[in-house]
Amino acid sequence: MAEVLVVGAGPVGTLLAAELTRFGVEVAIVERREAAGGGSRAIGVHAPVLAALEAGGATERLLSSAVRVRRGEARSDGRAIGAVDFGRLDVRHPYVATLPQVETERALRGDGPEPERGTTVARVAPDGARMWVETDRGDRAAPIVVVAGGVGARNLVYRPEALRRTAYADRYLMTDAAVPPRADAETAVVHLAPGGVLESFPLPGGRRRFVAWDAGGSAASRADRLRRAMRERGEAEAAEAVTEATEFGVRRVLAPAMRRDRVFVIGDAAHEVSPIGGQGMNLGLLDAATLAPLLAAWIRSGSAPEADLAEWERDRVRSARVAGRLAAVNMALGRPVSGAVHALRSRVLGSVLAATGGLVPHAYAMGLDRASR
């Protein structure tokens, strides 16, 4: 019997299993997906996560193939109005490391266990001094269970009425595309326009991630709508490289608690924030990185470190609340507005970026997360 059973082998569950293995804990991990990748829109790993993963070797593996984004730029009507300089941060890794999710999961796995794929968990229940887990491939038990299976695993632990939910009407189009060589190849760019925001992020291999606010309601295909948005908002040349696009909506869900006795919930299963702002996956990775040593101490001693676990839970809930608010601000800044409001918004944002110095990059690089203290 494993000492800890992890439900979910996305980036968050994969990291937790790897870290527990590094601490000498016997771990099993189950995953309903048949193959790695998919299920997430996250591509950026922030400074506090990179620092937290150094000891286990994951940081070195991540950086071996990632693009190190040291600068973000806000543009309006094709003109730069301000910049976010991550290089100004007084941290070990003053940049955002970007790479596709499947590569992120591979780098995070390290010496962790191979997940048991194609396994769906139906129920998690207490059974004396252990937890009982029902799956479609048979039942199993473990002293501690950690649910890290994202949105789809949330109902294993929470009643729907127990969660704070905020629904947003915003819809977005997204694609990763190989683009022609460009001078800003390693710069993240946010294009502000009356029709809505367009975000452009570097990826390895000369590719970029594009995300555009979408009005919908058109008979045109998603790819056609995204190409049109890119042409209108400052990425006309890159628009020609787009061949497909996906569509997604956003919501905010915040669980009031992340632990009940021997069951823990981390990542999107506990706190879902808008991907606009890029902090959701990092929030979950910090959940895992800070929880692993506490669970290892529990297993070694046979006694739960209650005070430390209570502090961990308070810090992670507070950090999720902050990340959710920041994501809501980002969405508000990127919604369609009139021409006059757009001009005013651009002037104000340019002034804020110029006046706040390192505060904005500090916030966007997870500097407000309590694990970064």
Rank of each mutant, 00 (worst) to 15 (best):
V197D: 12
A220Y: 12
P160N: 14
R222H: 12
V189F: 08
V151H: 07
T166K: 14
P180I: 00
D176Y: 13
A219N: 11
L203H: 02
E237Y: 05
A153L: 01
Y158V: 13
R182A: 15
R164M: 01
E186A: 11
A162C: 08
E232A: 15
E199H: 06
A193I: 01
G205S: 11
E235S: 11
N155Y: 09
V179W: 04
G152F: 00
G206S: 14
S218V: 10
R231C: 06
D214P: 06
P181Y: 10
A177F: 14
T187C: 08
R233M: 00
T175W: 03
M174C: 04
E186S: 03
S221G: 04
A183G: 12
V151L: 09
G206L: 06
L198Y: 04
R227L: 00
A188E: 10
R228P: 02
H191W: 15
R208Q: 08
G152A: 07
F210E: 03
P160E: 12
L226V: 00
R231M: 10
A153K: 01
G149A: 03
Y172H: 12
G216A: 00
D170T: 09
R207A: 08
D184M: 06
T166R: 15
R207I: 01
D184K: 03
G216W: 07
T175F: 10
P160D: 11
L163K: 15
G152C: 00
V211W: 04
D170A: 14
A238K: 15
R159F: 06
S221W: 10
V179R: 08
H191P: 14
R171C: 05
R228A: 15
R208D: 03
R231D: 10
A178C: 02
D224L: 02
R209D: 06
T175E: 11
N155A: 11
P204V: 01
P181S: 05
F210K: 13
A229I: 00
D170G: 07
D176P: 14
G234K: 09
A236W: 09
H191R: 15
F210L: 10
A215V: 12
V190W: 12
E237K: 04
V197I: 15
L163R: 13
R182S: 14
Y172Q: 04
L173Y: 07
A162V: 07
Y158I: 13
Y172W: 14
P160F: 15
R207C: 03
A177V: 14
F201A: 10
S218H: 02
V197P: 15
P194E: 02
V189Q: 13
E199M: 07
G217P: 01
G217K: 08
E186N: 11
L203Q: 04
G216C: 00
A223C: 08
A223G: 01
G196H: 06
G195Q: 06
R154Y: 11
A188W: 04
M230E: 06
A153S: 09
W213Y: 13
R233V: 02
A188G: 04
V190D: 12
R207E: 02
A153W: 01
T175Q: 08
R165Y: 07
P181H: 09
A238Y: 07
Y158K: 15
E186D: 07
E186C: 08
A215F: 10
S200A: 01
G195I: 08
R208C: 05
V197N: 12
